[in-house]
Design a protein around this nucleic acid. Structure first.
Lengths: 340, 340
DNA sequence: AATAAATGAGTTACCGATAACTCCAAATTA
DNA sequence: TAATTTGGAGTTATCGGTAACTCATTTATT
């Protein structure tokens, strides 16, 4: 490995001079600067960021931890975060916790050990509290995405779960649906709680029955719930005419479960959900959704995070926490039948 | 920040003793070991990986660079790579080059600077050669995924583009299609070249015409080609009865372009492509594809990479390059019309 | 012309860990 | 009993950079 000392020796200067050339700091004559630069190219020098970060105590690296890398909501969010990070001069690394507190814990440990400058994360659930406390205790700034965690304050970018749910519910009710079920994420997750509450509110407001068995609570975790949704449906009498799903991945599995029973969507049961489906969903614009601004989640979250880091460095930063609430948009397609 | 020196002082031992406890190396009495461990917990100590890596000259970190993080092929691949890396004790970081040589160059520079132990990458194209040469020159092991780059040898995991294309072509031809067009990735990309060649072979083998204007070459880059596909279609007389697409994202855009002209898939024009669509595609199993084993690309690639790293450390490793060819599977759905 | 200021660079210490070597005392062996 | 071995640590140098200070020349100022 070529180091600044190798360069220094060959250029007949001190290592410090090389360092100054690299960082464009301090006073260097044009002649020396060019000589050093030439030799750096000659030797194919690449700075060792680890040595640099060790002494500077900052890495210029940020971390994005999502709960499902195969969910288009999160990949779009990731692109937003990436764009913002690059624009603001940071490098961005991704991790995927798969909705698992255990994997999240491992990633948090990695983050702490690697002295990343800040973290953008969608927490796996309320059980993420100790992980966030770790980050806080070690002075690592973080911004939460999509979900809050009770017990700890922080900047956060949220979707408007309440209003989004209301829109979906009103849509279904307006089309004549009265028996509406809910397939939701775990109540461990703040967004799922808000959606459940708004779901019940909407039923009550419209004088509709809300038998508790019509709510199924599952993990948001991908690829795991098909069978359980099927069993739950088997136990429902009468079947609901429509099902609201807590997110896009659950809606997909719900549709599959319905079809497995030989029923059709939306003719037999309607389905709608939170979050859009990304490019793949465009092939067949079928699912009615409350689309969230996934890209903005990442972009705004990254801006908040980098703002925090700057505050911290300027020793300011005793601001209150910022809370960004992104509106959802009702996108009506064909998965909810008109019963009127 | 708590360091081993803080621990050492409080435990009345030397820093080296603390280091030994952390790494379970050398001889330590149970008594000292426990004392040190207790104090580490008390002070909430987290090792500084950067300092550690600096002296050890290895990071235990691997990098996965894909060309489109919103493509389900790559997110599934990423999960495979992640699983393999975790199983084998490495941490994995992701990057997204967006099919851009420039972004790829930036990521490669980041990789070099951060002294990652190895890289798994889908190169943006033949223009990636200098990037790979950089990695090679700096002794960073890498494994290519999905695409080869002429001019440099390496381990590589490829899909069987030739056979996959053949299967798709035979399928269309068997259903009576004679005017088959190709919307392909850039000839800068090895997989696109193979697919183009196999496409022409299949036409010739079946005595079908192959007018050059029936081939459209675009970037695989996402979200950019809709308009150009539309214009290209406008210039084709007669319209093809079927279009083979170089990958799933292009197929989506092709379908959209066809519909924008007021035509239907598959009634007016059939479409099929390489790569499946992931969970979102399950909502409406519509697109006929040559499904590649995305997860295996990541999993096998990671195994190869870690194997290389081990070879390098054991000073062995003058093996020839390994070349894994993963078969594609024809998944017939509804996007190709039966003309018979 | 004498003094002050600016320029261009070198020295030294340190960031937080580990390797390699040293050292002492207790246990083992001849 | 003297000579070895071994268990349990400590010392020092080093990884590859940067901050802060120092110092010798030039150049500008009065």
């Amino acid at each position: 490995m070529v180091t600044i000392y190798d360069i220094a020796k060959k250029a007949n200067v001190s290592a410090m001079t090389v360092s100054r050339v690299i960082n464009n700091k301090g006073r260097i004559s044009e002649k020396t600067r060019n000589k050093v630069k030439r030799i750096m190219e000659e030797l194919n020098y690449v700075p060792n960021e680890m040595a640099r970060s060790l002494v500077l105590r900052e890495t210029q690296v940020l971390f994005l931890l999502v709960t499902d890398i195969t969910n288009p909501f999160f990949t779009t969010l990731a692109r937003g975060a990436e764009d913002a990070a690059n624009k603001l001069g940071y490098r961005l690394l991704f991790g995927n916790s798969d909705e698992s507190l255990e994997k999240e814990r491992e990633y948090v440990d990695t983050i702490l050990k690697s002295r990343v400058d800040g973290v953008l994360l969608a927490p796996a659930g309320d059980g993420s509290l100790p992980h966030l406390e770790s980050l806080r205790a070690h002075g690592v700034p973080f911004v939460l995405l999509d979900r809050e965690v009770p017990g700890i304050g922080s900047d956060v970018v949220l979707g408007d779960s309440r209003e989004g749910t209301r829109m979906l519910m009103e849509h279904m009710i307006a089309l004549g649906h009265k028996e509406i079920a809910l397939v939701n994420g775990s109540p461990e997750v703040s967004s799922a709680r808000l959606r459940a509450t708004a779901y019940k509110e909407a039923l009550k407001l419209n004088d509709l029955a809300a038998p508790p068995e019509r709510i199924l609570e599952l993990s948001y975790a991908p690829r795991s719930s098909l069978a359980r949704i099927g069993e739950w449906l088997d136990g429902l009498h009468p079947l609901p005419t429509a099902i609201l799903c807590g997110n896009n991945m659950m809606a997909i599995q719900t549709i599959q479960a319905i079809r497995k029973k030989g029923l059709r969507v939306p003719e037999d049961i309607s389905v709608c959900c939170f979050d859009d489906l990304g490019p793949v969903g465009e092939i067949d614009p079928f699912l009615t959704v409350a689309a969230q601004q996934a890209y903005q989640f990442g972009y705004k979250g990254m801006q908040l995070l980098i703002g925090r880091i700057a505050d911290k460095e300027n020793d300011g930063g005793d601001d209150a926490w910022t809370r960004v609430l992104l509106p959802a948009e009702l996108v009506v397609r064909r998965s909810v039948a008109d019963l009127r």
